[in-house]
């Protein structure tokens, strides 16, 4: 474990991402603090997913630094980088569960790969994670194709939690879920963040999640990040941010809360 580093847990500095002539990120800065739930917002095509993929090392940016606990991940050798990233979990938008494995095997896989654990302990820990993610025990024996959308997300969350991550990235965790499932998933994220002291980054369009779950929001506008609390962002002069946080849906939501 790296020593505790003062300042932001994850820092993105001067990130540049371009596809041909199309500039996605231009000198983008973002701070993610330890123990917070950060909501990442932006219009379609504004580069939310590319930003998360850059932080996770799934996309090589044209320039910039990704600092984790003070280490620049882009300059670390790949093996070292994997070492750090093992402390991160990612929930992909559509779960990305391995279709040939049962839910239990999906959750066991990272443990079996990275830790020397006996199969019994692996299974027991995987069942614990499945329980933590709010799935009934029998779900462990099912294949991803047999699960409903909400259960897929929970199973994927269980897999993301398998290696006891400190940081959890969630890509649109509530999209495609019915309001009941979305609500209980929101509660689950809050519960886990609180119980496990996680740092959570949520990419979402779910205004309810943004208003009620996230501690801080980061908006991508014109390839750069504007960060702040919901109230701060509602005061922001940028027209896109204004229309996002003052739209009828947001107003209606804030009236009822």
């Amino acid at each position: 474990m790296p020593a505790f580093h003062k300042g932001p847990f994850i820092q993105v500095r001067g990130l540049d991402n371009r596809f041909g002539d199309h500039v996605v990120h231009r000198d983008l800065d973002l701070d993610i603090h330890r123990g917070e739930i950060l909501g990442l917002v932006g219009g379609s095509g504004s580069g939310k997913t590319i930003l998360v993929r850059s932080i996770l090392g799934l996309h090589q940016p044209q320039g910039g630094e990704i600092l984790f606990n003070g280490h620049d991940l882009l300059k670390e050798p790949p093996r070292k980088r994997l070492q750090y990233q093992r402390q991160w979990g990612m929930l992909f938008q559509r779960g990305a569960l391995f279709s040939g494995l049962t839910v239990l095997e999906n959750v066991e896989l990272p443990m079996r790969e990275h830790l020397e654990l006996s199969p019994e302990i692996c299974a027991e820990l995987a069942r614990l994670k499945i329980h933590l993610a709010g799935l009934p025990p029998y779900a462990g024996q099912q294949y991803p194709s047999e699960l409903s959308g909400g259960m897929v997300k929970r199973a994927a969350l269980a897999r993301a939690l398998a290696l006891e991550p400190e940081v959890l990235f969630l890509d649109e965790p509530t999209s495609g879920l019915d309001p009941i499932a979305a609500n209980s998933f929101d509660n689950l994220i809050q519960y886990l963040q609180d119980a496990l002291q996680l740092t959570v980054v949520i990419v979402t369009h779910d205004l309810y999640t943004l208003a009620n779950v996230c501690h801080r929001l980061a908006v991508i506008v014109d390839g750069q990040v504007v960060a702040g609390t919901l109230e701060e962002l509602r005061q922001h002069p940028d027209p896109w941010i204004r229309s996002y946080f003052h739209g009828p849906r947001m107003e209606a939501l804030l009236r009822t809360v």
């Binding site: 027991e124 069942r127 329980h131 024996q141 519960y191 119980a195 496990l196």
Partner: peptide
């Protein structure tokens, strides 16, 4: 305090696994 919350919230209600 952090640890006791951990014990209560996380593993306290983990049901005993019954072999199918």
């Amino acid at each position: 305090q952090a640890h006791s919350r951990f014990m209560d919230q996380v593993v306290g209600d983990f049901p005993e696994y019954e072999e199918a």
